[in-house]
Write a protein that binds this DNA or RNA. Structure first.
Length: 565
RNA sequence: CGGGAUGUAGCGCAGCUUGGUAGCGCACCUCGCUUGGGACGAGGGGGUCGCAGGUUCAAAUCCUGUCAUCCCGACCA
């Protein structure tokens, strides 16, 4: 490719509307251009990167036995009604009507389509297992698209769906996919960690997310992990062993105490001269318009996804002060589960189980009850957020936390879709059974963005060689110098013949401009043809570590091959 | 949807307080000069000042509404 012909315009400054470094660099280096919020055109350089990632995915998926298909992007409401998700998916599902008034939606995912696809094709246990995948555009009308390609509304995804006649076979395929994913990301130059996670809107029981761990702030997930045994989980799923020794409040008897102006746990702890973990706090939430009171140890935070799972809700928010007064007839800060309105569902977090002689609100302004003990220990459930330093549930070593970018996930769906959609096969014994299913996603565009988040410096992108748009850029310093230009052209042609992907920066620009652009665009290797060609030498430079050597033009091909192998 | 900010040329910004010819840098075009880390000189093209109302002799500037974008919280590959 000739740089002078490449459809690209680099910017001297970062765009103002970008926050994440991958977003800034992709725009500035001329890889993407925004059309509207969350929708980007992939310019030629970007398209090459995405093609490379897609090809790696294809190779590995095919090797694992999966088969590629391509399903429609616009889908009929009817199948979503059948699965039950038309009603629950919410505003994220972009809905539209065709000219006859039929309801349809833009594909955010394809469980419904793939499940209905089996009709008339998959009918016998003898045909199982099957794993179908596609690489396709998805559209999710996200509440808040941001960070460029890290979370667009329109994005490219590889999604795979498997069909099985037994849980054991699903377990086997799940393992195969897990290994395949690790390999795919490795080949893309990314180290990932498979973490346990909540299964969210897709549904199912077992699921893992593949995280690229970052220390930058844009990772949108907190990942808790154990350095000793390797346990790792998304914060919405992580658990820890409770420290039971410090939860005795030490009060000798139960008593109502005047505690004026103690609206927060900190204020109350200070006032009573106790630790926050001796208080059982009351967190009032509204889940799907119904009141829920969560009792949780004072030093712990509510984890919202866990709560939604615990009460089988779809949407939660914290109650307003006004709602608290309405439901409790009491000022915020003094609530408890005692003598409350029966409409309110009370959830006890696991942390409440081991508490003794603790403090709770009195449901009366300016009063708390100290030295309280449960007469009967209530049924508890885990709805609290793990904190760094708490003990690993597997080996009891302290847990660490880091940010992660989710680039892929795998779910065991079971019969969540096949059952309601009545997608069945005939088993050995002649009976009809719903398929046992799994699904497996990779955010192709997100992989590219994550690679940049991970690999960049002050000068620009540093692509892993496997997914770089081109391997090498050849830079003649002075295009009007015949020897330089001819040498550069010659190298360019020879590299191409060797199957090395190369750009010739033939623009009549000063060297500085070309160097800056080469660094910004992130090509792994740069061959500079300058004055030293008069002594028969060109410069070979590695983007990643800045290593630079002078070699004869004839050695360039071998040197490139050596580096790229 | 709640809280904060911003909309002026492809990009980055000034001008607005105190209404009066729409500007600067980058990018783009022409010519000259230059050629190892975003040179320089001269000339040039490009903007319904987000949109709609209102106030005024006159609005980028003041007022009202609206839309969009970005950031912080509830979503997810």
């Amino acid at each position: 490719m000739l740089m002078s012909k490449l459809f690209v315009q680099t910017l001297r400054e970062f765009p103002n509307d970008a926050e994440a470094i991958s977003h800034k660099l992709l725009v500035r280096a001329g890889y993407i251009k925004k059309l509207m919020t969350g929708s980007y055109t992939y310019l030629p350089l970007m398209q090459r990167v995405l093609t490379k990632i897609s090809n790696i995915i294809r190779e590995e998926m095919n090797a694992s036995g999966a088969q590629e298909v391509l399903m429609p992007f616009v889908q009929p409401a009817s199948i979503w009604e059948k699965s039950g998700r038309w009603a629950v998916y919410g505003k994220e599902l972009a809905r539209l009507k065709d000219r006859s008034g039929n309801e349809m939606c833009l594909a955010p995912t394809h469980e419904e389509v793939v499940t209905s696809l089996t009709e008339g094709i998959l009918s016998s246990y003898r045909q199982l297992p099957v794993n179908l995948y596609q690489i396709q555009t998805k559209f999710r009308d996200e509440i808040r698209p941001r960070f460029g390609l890290l979370r667009g509304r329109e994005f490219t995804m590889k999604d795979a769906y498997s069909f099985h006649s037994s849980q054991e076979d699903l377990d086997r395929e799940y393992e195969v996919m897990s290994k395949t994913y690790t390999k795919i990301f490795e080949r893309c130059g990314l180290e990932t960690r498979a973490v346990q996670s909540d299964s969210g809107a897709i549904g199912g029981k077992v699921s893992h997310e593949f995280m690229v761990l970052t220390d930058t702030a844009v990772g949108e997930n907190d990942v808790f992990y154990c350095g000793k045994c390797g346990y790792s989980a998304n914060s919405n799923h992580a658990i820890s062993i409770l420290n039971e020794t410090e939860t005795d409040g030490g009060f000798s008897s139960q008593e109502k105490v005047y505690t004026p102006d103690t609206r927060t746990i900190e204020q109350l702890a200070e006032f009573l001269n106790i630790k926050p973990n001796n208080i059982l706090k009351s967190v009032f939430c509204i889940v799907d318009d119904k009141p829920v009171l969560v009792m949780i140890r004072g030093d712990k935070e509510l984890e919202e996804t866990k709560l939604l799972n615990a009460v089988q809700g779809l949407e939660m928010r914290y109650g307003t002060d006004e709602e608290i007064r309405q439901y409790f007839n009491c000022e915020p800060g003094f609530l408890s589960f005692l003598n409350i309105n029966k409409e309110i569902k009370v959830i006890y977090d696991d942390t409440s189980k081991t508490m003794k002689n603790f403090v709770i609100g009195a449901n009366e302004k300016d009063y708390h009850i100290v030295g309280y003990n449960f007469k009967e220990t209530p049924e508890t459930v885990d709805v609290s957020l793990v904190k760094e330093g708490e003990k690993c549930p597997v080996c009891k070593a302290p847990l660490h936390v880091t940010r992660g970018i989710e680039v892929g996930n795998i779910f065991q769906l079971g019969t969540k879709y096949s059952k309601p959609m009545n997608a069945c096969y005939t088993d050995e014994d002649g009976s009809l059974k719903p398929f046992i299913m799994g699904c497996y996603g990779i955010g192709v565009t997100r992989v590219a963005a994550a690679a940049i988040e991970k690999y960049h410096d002050d000068f620009g992108i540093i692509w892993p060689k496997e997914i770089a748009p081109y391997h090498v850029v050849v830079v003649p310093v002075n295009v009007s110098d015949e020897l330089q230009m001819n040498t550069a052209k010659d190298l360019y042609e020879k590299l191409q013949k060797e199957g090395i992907e190369v750009v010739l920066d033939d623009r009549d620009e000063r060297a500085g401009v070309k160097f800056k652009d080469a660094d910004l665009m992130g090509f792994p290797l740069r061959i500079t043809v300058g004055k030293t060609i008069n002594e028969g030498l060109v410069e070979f430079k590695v983007r990643k570590n800045g290593e630079m050597i002078k070699i004869a033009p004839d050695d360039v091909i071998n040197k490139c091959k050596e580096y790229l192998k």
